[in-house]
Design a protein around this nucleic acid. Sequence first.
DNA 1: AAGCCGGGGTA
DNA 2: TACCCAGGCTT
Length: 348
Amino acid sequence: MPLLPPAAPLLAWYDRHRRVLPFRSRGGPPDPYHVWLSEVMLQQTTVAAVGPRFDRFLARFPSVAALAAAPEGDVMEEWAGLGYYARARNLHACARLVAARGGFPREAAALRELPGIGAYTAAAVAAIAFDRPVVPVDGNVERVVARLAAEEAELPGAKPRLAALAEGFMADAEARARPGDFAQALFDLGATICTPRAPACALCPWREGCEARKRGIQEELPRKAPKRARPLRQGMHFLLTDAAGQVLLRRRPPKGLLGGMLEIPGTPWRDEPWSEAEALPFAPLPGLRWRRVPGVARHGFTHFELEMGLLAAEVPALSPAEGMEARPLAEAPAALPTVMRRLLQLLE
DNA sequence: AAGCCGGGGTA
DNA sequence: TACCCAGGCTT
């Protein structure tokens, strides 16, 4: 098994080239609340997408105590558009636990017990906020380590092996002296030099010790198991508005797809397209005359693609049933997940 | 171990 | 288009 390269060149590179990011502390010690919030937002979400949303979230919920005291609906609404909405629910639950115990645990093992915090986030918060000697293993670190060690086994099967290799970084005293910087240096290396495609090996502080580069296979690693094709599903939705400019929305069940988020009422999503007559029994109010809004809206989820049609009708005044609520049409997009915003875009 | 769970940036 | 992203939870 090839040895991991020393931490010193990477840390020196980081000291010169580290990215300036909205959620990164400048100067002073990092605020654990800020570190935790940014790490949760960054789960499967790009730095570019998180930046503005992090500042907006902090403005609305400035502290763990403020977040813990907020109604869950407010948190879900603030999360609208970010995706993976279970993160928002877990974030809120976690804030309440942390507020009750008077602060975040400092050890990764204890952080790991909190809702929404897995192995990665526990290590990231422990290292960055508390300088505990652990290595968070995300997609960047997996890629860097797979190339350093020329690990040819496919992901996700190779995850445990890559994590075990990454743990070895902390055997180096220079890494152990700066765990937070070391973790973020790995992220920055993966994001700017050791990129998924066309890595800039000539600029890499670890180019001498990289086994994949020696063999010329750096662009092929990490290998990944092939993914299944996403099926296409169909839905028909009902835009019911009133004379005051309000629109009828429905709250989705707390768990599952888009759990806890608002939606525009509609049919179930199935494999075949819906005719207007087939869809009508699913309308939020019977006996209305619906008109078809031209066009179809498309949206991609993780495991299927969705195509939606829209029917519109108007009543004098909405009286929302249980599980429904009326909102001004102009304010609806801000509270809706992106898939529902796509439907509203058909009106333009 | 495998499936479920969003959305956007990028080539 | 397809791939990837500072992953976690459930079964």
